[in-house]
Amino acid sequence: MKILIVEDEAALQNLMTRALRKEGFVVENAVDFSSAVDKLDVYVYDCVLLDIMLPGGSGLDILSHIKGMNRKVNVIIISAKDSIDDKVRGLELGADDYLAKPFHIAELVARIRSVARRSQADGDFAFRLGNVVLEPESRRLMVAGREVPLLKKEFDILKYFMQRPEHLVDKAVLAEAVWGDHIDQADNFQFVYAQMKNLRRKLSDAGADIEIKAVYGFGYKLTGR
C-alpha cells in the first residue's frame, strides 16, 4: 500500500514515515502545497495523509484537487487545529477520516487500515484476526462463527486492541481511549482490570485464537495464541 504524507513539520514527517514503513507501507513525502500537487498529479497513491496548514496553501485545496482528479484515493486529514468546523469541511469535501494532533502512531495506523478496508471490502467494516471477527456497526463479536455477547466496555476495549495487534498498549492510554475524559486524574486502574478480566475469560471460553496479554504490569498486548 502506497501512502503520501503531506506534512511540513520535518520531525513529525520523519516519525510518521519511519512508523508507517515499519508497518510495511510504501511511504513518500511532500513538504508543501506545490510539491504535494506535483506528486499527486504524477503518481498514484492508495492513501494521503494531509496536513491542513501548509506553506503555499491550504490542505483543503489539495483535497479538492484530489477529488477533482476522480481517482480512488483515501484521504485522512491530520490537523493541529482540532476544530469541528475544519473537520466538517474536510469530511464534506470528501476526506475519509480526520485525526487531530497530537495523536498516537498506533491510532494513525489503525485509521489507515480502517479506511483502506472500507474502500476495498465495500461496506464490510469488520475487523478480522484469526477466528475472531468484530463488527463495529452491529457491535457483534463472532468467535469461530459463534456470537459471543460482550458488555459495552468489553467491546470497546477489544475493538481498540483489534486495531493495534502486536502493539504494547499502556493501560492509562487504554483507559483514556475507552472511558474518555472521565479518567484523566484517576490514579488507579482497578476498573480496567475488572473489565479486562471478564473480556479475557470470555475470549478464552469461546476458544478464540487471539488473547490479550498483560505486559510488565502496566500494559497489554493483543497476540495470537
Binding site: L15, A80, P102, F103
Partner: peptide, 20 residues
Amino acid sequence: SHELQTPLAVCTGRIEMLLD
C-alpha cells in the same frame, strides 16, 4: 497551545515506537 500540538505528537509517536 496550537503550536505545541505538533511537537507533542512527535514525542508521543517516538515513545510509542520505542515501546514497540
